[in-house]
Amino acid sequence: MADTARRPPTATAAPPAGRRPAWQRPGSRERRAAVAGYTFLLPWFVGLFGITLFPMLYSLYLSFTDFDLLQEPQWVGLENYVRMLTDDPQYWNSVWATFLFAVVSVPLKLAVALGVALLLYRDRRGVGGYRALFYVPSLLGGSVAIAIVWQTLFGGQGAINEVLALVGIEGRSWITNPSTALGTLVLLAAWQFGAPMVIFLAGLKQIPAELFEAGALDGAGRFKQFWHITLPMLSPVLFFNLVLETIAGFQGFTAAFVISGGTGGPADSTLLYTLYLYLRGFGDFQMGYASAMAWAFLLVLGLITAVVFRSGSLWVHYADEGEH
């Protein structure tokens, strides 16, 4: 009995070296959950690597080659980039047309969207129908049909000239005149203001009514309320719309392609950057040069977006909950 009392209790055998205890190993349920999760993510991974990353990296390689889609790419180094910057005046025409289009169309589109949102954000009878009606052009944005309609409206025998003739103004073929052709594209872009308008409506709904009441009690009129209350409180939404519309503005293609007949004319006035890239790559089969243009465009657009983000710290106002 004494020996039995002195015997130490039996210890559980330690797991082999390098192997975790059973309670630390994931069970079959966790493994099945992980497998199911990765299975559902598999289409996204396939799309990311097969449709996005691999084509991007391949186009980066092609930008350093001479590739005509028919023969094997021939390595030429920086020749495409040097040619683009120093020996292609039509390239700079497209840069200027795109810059002018974006600089004019984006502020105009946002101003129209904000103005309409201010008219429609209060709940009135039938206001929902008007909101839907003004949003319809954005649903049709980028469509060939709308571009054809716009081409007809601003043609020499179009409805715009007929309206001008009623007030004694002689019209012209707006889309074939180098001084007005780009303006028709700007008007088309501004007309499709529905998407930023809806975002502005959501932002206006979030502004506390007490701020306007306090401003009215202090003697602030409509303009002062808009300038000192609406704009500061709406600045994050305005910033969001500005970023989205700036990126979209520099990527304009369909309207310029249809209205100009795929040439960017007259006199390269509607030769937007993406249209010129398309013409070089698929019209002239200079895919290496077009790839170089695409990467230059990506870098410049990224830089412009970074500048917009950097400027946000100067004018975007994020209200704290205590300010409400």
Rank of each mutant, 00 (worst) to 15 (best):
E79S: 01
N80D: 02
N80S: 01
Y81G: 01
Y81C: 03
V82K: 03
R83S: 07
R83Y: 09
R83I: 04
M84P: 02
M84V: 07
T86G: 04
D87H: 04
D87T: 06
D88G: 01
D88T: 02
P89T: 03
Q90H: 05
Y91G: 01
N93F: 10
N93C: 11
N93Y: 10
S94K: 01
S94M: 05
V95M: 07
W96E: 15
T98A: 09
T98W: 06
L100A: 14
L100I: 01
F101V: 01
F101H: 12
F101D: 10
V103S: 07
V103W: 00
S105G: 11
S105T: 14
S105L: 03
S105D: 13
V106R: 03
L108V: 13
L108I: 11
A111C: 12
A111M: 12
V112S: 12
V112D: 13
V112E: 11
A113I: 02
L114Y: 02
L114V: 09
G115Y: 04
V116P: 02
V116N: 04
A117C: 09
A117L: 05
L119A: 08
L120H: 02
L120M: 07
Y121L: 09
Y121A: 10
Y121R: 04
R122C: 14
D123G: 00
D123R: 00
D123H: 00
D123K: 00
D123C: 00
R124C: 06
G126V: 05
G126P: 04
G126D: 13
V127S: 09
V127T: 14
V127I: 13
G128Q: 13
G128D: 15
G129D: 08
G129K: 00
Y130Q: 08
Y130E: 01
Y130W: 14
R131F: 05
R131T: 03
A132H: 04
L133W: 10
L133D: 04
L133Y: 11
F134P: 03
Y135R: 15
V136F: 12
V136L: 15
P137I: 02
L139K: 12
L139S: 12
L140W: 14
L140V: 05
G142I: 03
G142D: 11
S143N: 10
S143M: 12
V144K: 07
A145P: 11
A145Q: 12
I146R: 15
I146V: 14
A147D: 14
A147L: 08
V149W: 06
V149A: 11
V149D: 13
V149I: 15
V149N: 11
Q151S: 14
T152Y: 11
T152D: 08
T152V: 14
F154I: 12
G156L: 09
Q157L: 08
Q157I: 06
A159H: 00
A159L: 15
I160K: 06
I160Y: 04
N161C: 15
N161P: 12
N161S: 13
E162A: 13
E162W: 06
E162P: 00
V163C: 09
L164A: 10
L164N: 11
A165W: 01
V167W: 11
G168V: 15
G168K: 05
I169K: 01
I169N: 01
